[in-house]
Each structure stands twice: as C-alpha cells, then as structure tokens.
C-alpha cells in the first residue's frame, strides 16, 4: 500500500519534470535558406512560453514544425517523450505512417493567424466536429461541451451562426474554443492576433489569458510584447532561425543580453508595448 503510494508520487514527480514538448537541434530549410537553424526548446507541463522575434525569424515555422504541418529537415521533436513523425524500425529511423502522425496530432491543437474556421459549418459544428470525428465523443457530449466552451469565450448566442457572420475577433475566439475542445496536451498559437483590427485584439488576448490561468501548456508566437510579459512563464527570442534568448519575462524585458534582442525591444517598446512591430 505504502509502496504503491510511493510509486505514484515518484511517477507524479517525474511527470511534472518531464517536458511536454522537447525540441532538439531542429532544422528546417526552405529552398536552400535555413528557416530554423538548430533550435532547442523545452516546455514543461502547465508552462506558457511566448515566442517573440522579428518577421521571418522562424517563429511560425517553429510551431508549425512542432504540429507536424511542415516536414522537418533535421533534429527531433518529442511530445511527452515520444518522437514525433518518425519511428525506430529494425531498418533504422523511418517516417511514421499517416495514421501514426494523425494520432500524435490529436494531442496538440493549433490556433492560426487567419483563424481557418470551416466556412461551410456553423460555429457549433466547427467546435464539436473534431471531438466527434477524431476523439470519439458522442454528438450529445460534444455538443454540450462545445456550448460550454462557446459560453466561456463569450459567444453563447452565436452557436448557430456561420463564421462569415462574425467579426475577426469573434472568429478567433471560436477558433480558440475549437482548439480547446479536444483537451490538448499542448496548445499552439501562431500569431493569433496579427490578422485582427486593433480594437479586436484585446478580446482575443483576454481569452488566451483566461486559458493560461487554467494551467494549460501553451506555446504562443506573438508580436504583443505587453501580453507576453503578463502571461508567459518564459519568453523566447528568435532571430534568423535561431533561438537567441530563453528567459523569464521580467529578465527578458529589463535585462536583454543579446544585441539582437536589445535592438528588438526598444523599437517595439516605444508605445509602452501597445505598438506592434
């Protein structure tokens, strides 16, 4: 009895220590130009990591590679210790089957810059379809859950609307509800507010903040410095496909070490962080 309890506690400790996402020496090349040039990153359970950097620094490519939307050219990505996209076979390391990759992708969710809601489905169906098709929930269960989530993001009265009837901010909040509906191990955000009118950014950031408070593991690529400072447990700075700084937000903003980050921060910080690069 006591031994069993002991085992459970050590398992739990290891569970909290082991990173949910581990990126090792990740490399990605587009037409001969390296987009990611040896990136290492660890994200522990419940951690919120903000990825910052100038345009073209590889931020989006990084999260897209983690979600296996892009083939990687080198290095490795692990989810809960499991290698993503490849498997060890007697004949060596080989790409995983389509089905195997799908099973891995189900454990992650992604929120896109352009929302990418399915325009031919209602808001409700957008949110409930993945739990039904991919995670085997009954339609009733999925509907209940979807309605709950849409209430939480403040769109209870829009469940039967089509995406085209919503503002950009509302669409993005639906996309967030859709991403959360499958209870992912990790939530990935790819510049979730970059396609929004300035007055709509606040509502979406608030929705993400609420999620962060709920102890979710998240990687957020963003240009919103103030937001990153408030929400993130760690801020990561990327430039030219490399990860240059990886530190807690208070140090990141007050004591940037690299020249690149020093050059990046004041320029964008001119308007007390409200201004986007």
């Amino acid at each position: 009895m006591s031994a069993a309890a002991h085992d459970v506690s050590t398992d739990a400790v290891q569970e909290t220590l082991r990173p949910v996402i581990e990126v090792q020496n990740l490399r990605k090349v587009y037409g001969g130009v390296p987009a990611l040039d040896g990136v290492d990153l660890q994200v522990r359970p419940g951690e919120v990591v903000a990825v910052l950097g100038p345009s073209g620094s590889g931020k989006s490519t990084l999260v897209r590679c983690i979600d296996q939307l892009e083939e990687i050219d080198g290095g490795a990505v692990f989810l809960d210790g499991e290698l993503l996209g490849y498997e060890q076979t007697p004949g060596g390391l080989r790409p995983l089957s389509e089905r195997g990759r799908r099973d891995q992708r189900r454990l992650m969710s992604m929120v896109f810059q352009q929302f990418n809601l399915f325009p031919h489905w209602t808001v409700l169906r957008n949110v409930m379809e993945a739990p039904v098709q991919v995670h085997g929930l009954s339609r009733d269960q999925a509907r209940q859950k979807a309605v709950q989530l849409l209430e939480r993001v403040g769109l209870a009265e829009k469940v039967l609307a089509y995406p085209r009837h919503l503002s950009g901010g509302q669409q993005q909040r639906v996309a967030i509800a859709r991403a959360v509906a499958v209870d992912p191990r990790v939530l990935l955000f790819d510049e979730p507010t970059s396609a929004l009118d300035p007055e709509l950014i606040g509502e979406v950031l608030q929705t993400i903040k609420d999620l962060a408070a709920g102890n979710r593991t998240m990687i957020v690529v963003t240009h919103e410095l103030e937001f990153a400072r408030e929400v993130a447990d760690r801020c990561v700075f990327m430039a030219d496909g490399r990860l240059i700084e990886d530190r807690p937000p208070e140090e990141f903003f007050t004591d940037p070490r690299s020249e690149r980050l020093q050059a990046f921060l004041p320029r964008s910080h001119g308007g007390s962080g409200q201004e986007r690069s």
Binding site: D67, Q68, L69, E98, R99, R102, D103, R105, R106, M108, S109, M110, F112, Q114, N116, L117, F118, A130, Q133, V134, R178, V182
Partner: peptide, 17 residues
C-alpha cells in the same frame, strides 16, 4: 484555401475526412 488543410490536419482529421 491552404489554411483549411492545415486546420483539418492539425485537428487530426484523417485524409479521407
């Protein structure tokens, strides 16, 4: 739109779905 493929595969939909 290419983003529709991205969203669908990110959600774990099979190719057929």
């Amino acid at each position: 739109d290419r983003g529709q493929h991205d969203a669908a595969s990110a959600m774990g939909f099979s190719r057929w779905n």
